[in-house]
Structures are given as structure tokens and as C-alpha cells.
């Protein structure tokens, strides 16, 4: 069973994306902290696509983003697909607060949060163009 949403890549649609993820997740898990964390992770990934990915594309029409929520063993998987230029957020460095200042690399807070909030993050550059990102968040132990 999968639940899908197609949305145009506009910041004003982030609220719709969050509502979609929350509603889909509630069908499988009633833990509101779990749902918030999943919603936040997806919001960050979709913001990344709009702000970074599609901002490189010239044209008046916003690109599209396709979201799929599906149950997997012990959790939920959210797949996000877009037609923006290739960009692998899983290779983007996270800020490491344990290193001395001079050894730290700059990194986006958004992808740092996605990594912290989910258990698995996978990326594929689609051969025909576009990006495929899949995150899995394991249900909390009740």
C-alpha cells in the first residue's frame, strides 16, 4: 500500500506537504513525536529541492515533486522524486559540533536534521534526469 502526492515545487506548498505526511503517517502510527519528526524531515528535504534543486532551473513554471509514503518493516518509508538537476544531499557534510572549530566543515542544517531524524537515507541520480531520495523512519518502541 502506498500513498502519493504530486505537488509543484513552491515554498507556499510546504504546508500542504506537511499535512499530507502527517495524515499518511497517522494511518500507521499514533505517536505524535514520531509524526512530527517525520514531517520535519520531509519538510527539510522538500525545502532543499525547492531552494537548491529547482532554483538552478530557469523558467516560469515550477517543477514538480512526487512524494510516496509506504509502510516497511517496523516503520515508514518516504520517497521523494523530482526533476531538478542532480544533487545528492546524502553526500553533503553535516556540521560536526564535536570537532574543533578549525576542523569543522560548513554544512546545511536541513540535511543535518534529516540525518538525525531518520534511520536510513538513500539517494539515486535518475539516469533520465532528476533525483530519487528515500528516507526510512522506524516506529518508536511502545
Amino acid at each position: 500500500m502506498t500513498i502519493n502526492l504530486d505537488v509543484s515545487a513552491e515554498l507556499s506548498h510546504l504546508s500542504m506537504v506537511r499535512s499530507f505526511i502527517a495524515q499518511a503517517a497517522r494511518g500507521f502510527c499514533q505517536d505524535e513525536n514520531y509524526i512530527y519528526d517525520l514531517v520535519l524531515a520531509v519538510d527539510e528535504a522538500v525545502t532543499n529541492i525547492i531552494v537548491h534543486g529547482y532554483s538552478q532551473v530557469q523558467g516560469a513554471t515550477p517543477g514538480s515533486i512526487h512524494l510516496t509514503v509506504e509502510p516497511v518493516s517496523g516503520g515508514l518509508a518516504v520517497t521523494i522524486q523530482d526533476d531538478a538537476p542532480w544533487f545528492d544531499p546524502t553526500r553533503h557534510p553535516s556540521p560536526d559540533f564535536t570537532l574543533p572549530l578549525e576542523m569543522r566543515q560548513r554544512g546545511g542544517m536541513g540535511i543535518h536534521l534529516v540525518r538525525q531524524l531518520t534511520e536510513t537515507l538513500e539517494y539515486q541520480a535518475l539516469p533520465a534526469g532528476g533525483n530519487w531520495l528515500r528516507m526510512v523512519k522506524v516506529f518508536p518502541v511502545s
Partner: peptide
């Protein structure tokens, strides 16, 4: 603007 502002944030917190 945009993504660069997000990078600036991590630098701000670190320093």
C-alpha cells in the same frame, strides 16, 4: 539568499 543563508547558519552556531 537561499541555500547560502542555510550554510551561514551553521557557521554562525559553530563560531
Amino acid at each position: 539568499e537561499g541555500w547560502n543563508a542555510f550554510h551561514a547558519v551553521s557557521n554562525f552556531v559553530e563560531n
